[in-house]
Amino acid sequence: MDPEVVAQRGLDGLATQLYRIAAGDIPAGAFPIRLVQNPEAARAVLMDHAAFPKNYDFLSAFAEGRFTANGEDWAARVRLTQPSYARNMVRFDDTAVEHIYRTHLRAHAADRGGEGRDGLYGAFVGAALEVVSGVFGLARPIAWDQDWLIRVRRLLVLRQWIAFAGAQAAAFDDVERRLAALRREILDLWAADADLQAVLASLALRGRDIPGFDAGEELIQNIIASSETTASSLMWAAHVLAGRPALAVAIHDHRNDGGRGLEAFIAELLRLFPPVPFVTRFSRDSRTIGGETFAAGEPLAISFVGLHCDPRRWDRPFDFDPARPEWAAASPPAGYFPFSTGARVCGGMKIAKIELRAGLRALVGGFDIHPGLGANSVTYGLSLRPGNSPRLDLA
């Protein structure tokens, strides 16, 4: 069988396992590495990023950047890129972002020929790419070819699965070479964009003191992190709304309740379908933290699915219910980390929240949403998505 198919099935299985473990159907030991689902331990690990560094070799094999870096390397990269987020966010209020999403969704709904590539997900990615391009000060979207991106995702899925399942040295080296070739392909495409090259040159100059810094790779990581997660959350939104049209009406009329219904819908979306279902870390040394003991060098995974679906803290945790009483409380139950927490909280959290609000309003404001074909399932690779794609028609 094709190794990429095996890898995709493997990662899909891990995502499904997280839900089954949270439901108590199978033990946590079924997951291939140590699983952390206790809110106190998870918070302690996420807060102490020096003692529990990130472990994302599969992504750094494609591109090095702030999202895989640790220690001072990470801190220096944040100081380099975060000001762009803050400086250019003023260009993006909810209305402007809603227009971007509506334009991409209309193009998708009108052009059924595009469904053979990335379908509705591609439309969401395209809109998110336009936003992140503006965040970096560009007047037009960065080139990010869909067919190329599909190949990248498949290969990164394979590389991530190898981290869990292992591979022979020759197979591992082949994946690394293919990832490098895909990276060169997009960097060569970018070479024809003078405005983008000016941004990259400025980034390279400011990052010259960071060992091994490559401005192109840094931008690649920023694009992946900012587009894939937002697009996956909006795919889940479409998936939910396709089966519950009354919710779509409520979101469309959200201004009547001051936006509370929209915010509760987003909170529930990120609770039940976290775009990153788990994050991996390792323990630098032996220590007890958050009531759990970790061995030196031990790999671990924090399950956001497990934290967000803990029946001891959430009523009917596997039901999608924006009206659940937890959202009416002063604060959600312990362990609700939709954007992680601590110093390494999602750097694009503010713009992501704007995109989710605007994307949802665009989705319910001009389209009829129909359920996708096939059984409900989850698929995972860079982000968690529904296994089938809802269909949009112009209303």
Rank of each mutant, 00 (worst) to 15 (best):
P3G: 08
V6C: 04
V6D: 06
I21L: 01
F31S: 00
P32L: 10
V36L: 04
E40K: 15
E40A: 15
V45R: 02
L46S: 03
H49C: 07
F52L: 00
P53S: 02
Y56N: 06
F58Y: 12
F58N: 02
F58T: 12
A61M: 13
G65E: 01
W74K: 06
A75F: 04
A76G: 03
R79N: 10
P83T: 00
Y85P: 00
R91P: 00
F92M: 08
T95V: 11
Y101K: 04
H104M: 11
R106K: 09
A107E: 09
G114S: 13
E115T: 06
G116P: 12
G116D: 11
Y121E: 07
Y121T: 02
V125H: 03
A128H: 00
S133F: 09
S133L: 11
V135G: 01
F136N: 00
G137V: 10
P141G: 13
D145A: 13
D147P: 10
V152F: 11
R154L: 11
V157F: 15
Q160D: 06
A163M: 13
A165N: 11
Q168D: 12
A169M: 15
A169S: 10
D174E: 14
R177P: 01
L179W: 09
L179G: 03
A180I: 03
L189M: 06
W190Y: 15
A194I: 05
L200H: 08
L200D: 07
R206P: 02
D209C: 06
P211T: 10
P211S: 05
G212S: 12
A215Y: 05
G216A: 03
I224K: 09
A225K: 13
S227G: 13
S227W: 07
S232C: 04
M235V: 07
H239T: 13
G243N: 08
L247V: 07
L247D: 12
A248Y: 15
D253T: 07
H254N: 15
H254P: 01
G259N: 10
R260G: 03
L262V: 01
E263N: 15
A264G: 03
A264M: 09
A267C: 10
P274G: 02
P275H: 14
P275K: 05
P275T: 15
P275N: 02
P277L: 11
F278L: 02
F282W: 15
R287E: 05
G290H: 09
E292Y: 05
L300I: 08
I302C: 02
S303C: 11
S303V: 14
C309G: 06
R312T: 06
R313P: 13
W314V: 04
P317Q: 10
F320G: 00
A330G: 11
A330Q: 14
F339K: 09
S340T: 09
S340W: 02
S340F: 10
A343E: 08
A343S: 13
M349E: 00
L356P: 06
R357P: 03
L360Q: 05
L360S: 11
L363E: 15
L363P: 05
D368T: 06
H370Q: 15
G374K: 07
N376F: 07
S377I: 08
Y380E: 08
L382Y: 01
S383I: 04
P386I: 12
P386W: 04
G387V: 06
N388M: 04
